[in-house]
């Protein structure tokens, strides 16, 4: 084994502590969600059971959890698809220089730094004054896009900055139309990055709280429902819910990484494109 300096071990220990700091609390509630029926919100464990998970699946026990989960899931998918499509279009637009590009860029950056509660409040006010009902699928959807689109656009910038234009030129030289060039050359090359955009779109929407607070109307999304629970639920059922939704998030993240990995592996194996050039 190669020799490592002392700084490696010191910094490595610091990094390990940081990871523990990141994941320790969530592991704690993961363990505590298996509390026995008489157990409380903190240690010690009062027996081990699935009692609190069972509670979650009983309809009346706690709020409208499954309804809010379905809404959050649907909203996440809507935001995800929209974010991918709009960000790719935006990324393509920024590759050609156009009038107003700077303004749009600064708007997107502003969208990231403006406090979320302002978006929530403003959108709520507009809908009220126009006499439109606020609903998670209309006002909530739009508000969440102001958070996911800038991330999508920035990822597309990073993607197109590294994009080799000679691929497109080659396609064009072969007589491909603009659409064919995009569909058969550009899109397959950027596809793994689009999965990244999709991951941001879905997870940021699924977990968003502030922007949906005043814009989701009478039907709560899951984060809103969970927050409501924190004020009136004092049993480990909230830990069980937290554990489940975190596991769900981990699964979603895992699926995306798996998809990226499969995609890059298939590309390495199936195509000999470019190999003759070496």
């Amino acid at each position: 084994m190669e020799h490592r300096s002392r700084s490696f071990y010191v910094l490595g220990a610091f990094f390990a502590l940081f990871v523990l700091f990141l994941y320790g609390p969530i592991l704690t509630i993961g363990i505590l969600s298996f509390q026995g029926p008489q157990g409380g919100l903190t240690f010690p464990m009062n027996g081990v059971s699935l009692h609190w998970f069972r509670d979650l699946f009983q309809e009346q026990a706690v709020g409208d959890i499954w309804g809010s989960f379905r809404r959050s899931f649907a909203l996440g998918l809507m935001v995800m698809v929209t974010t991918v499509v709009v960000s790719v279009l935006g990324g393509l637009a920024f590759r050609k220089r156009f009038q107003g590009a700077t303004v749009l860029f600064y708007l997107a950056i502003a969208s990231l730094v403006i406090p979320s509660i302002l978006v929530s409040l403003g959108v709520g006010l507009i809908f009220n004054q126009l006499g439109l009902p606020v609903h998670w699928a209309s006002s909530g959807f739009g508000s969440q896009l102001t958070w996911t689109l800038p991330f999508g656009l920035l990822i597309m910038f990073a993607v197109f900055n590294r994009f080799d234009k000679s691929f497109e030129e080659a396609a064009r030289d072969q007589g491909a139309t603009a659409w064919q060039t995009f569909a058969y050359v550009v899109l397959p090359i950027i596809a793994p990055s689009l999965l990244g955009v999709a991951l941001f779109g879905f997870t940021l929407s699924y977990d968003e709280f502030a922007r949906t607070l005043l814009t989701s109307g009478s039907y709560n999304t899951l984060p809103l429902e969970i927050f409501g629970m924190t004020t009136n639920v004092t049993t480990p059922v909230i830990f069980a819910l937290g554990t489940l939704t975190t596991i769900f998030s981990f699964c979603i993240i895992g699926v995306f990484f798996l998809a990226v990995w499969l995609m890059s592996r298939r590309r390495d194996n199936s195509s000999d494109a470019g190999k003759g050039m070496v």
Binding site: V86, F94, A108, S111, I114, V119, G122, V123, L125
Partner: peptide, 23 residues
């Protein structure tokens, strides 16, 4: 380019600029 940038511009106008103006 304008057509491609339009969806993003519209979303940001409707859900970022307009709300700030409204506030």
């Amino acid at each position: 380019a304008w057509i491609q940038a339009a969806p993003m511009a519209l979303v940001l106008l409707a859900f970022l600029v307009a709300p700030i103006v409204m506030i």
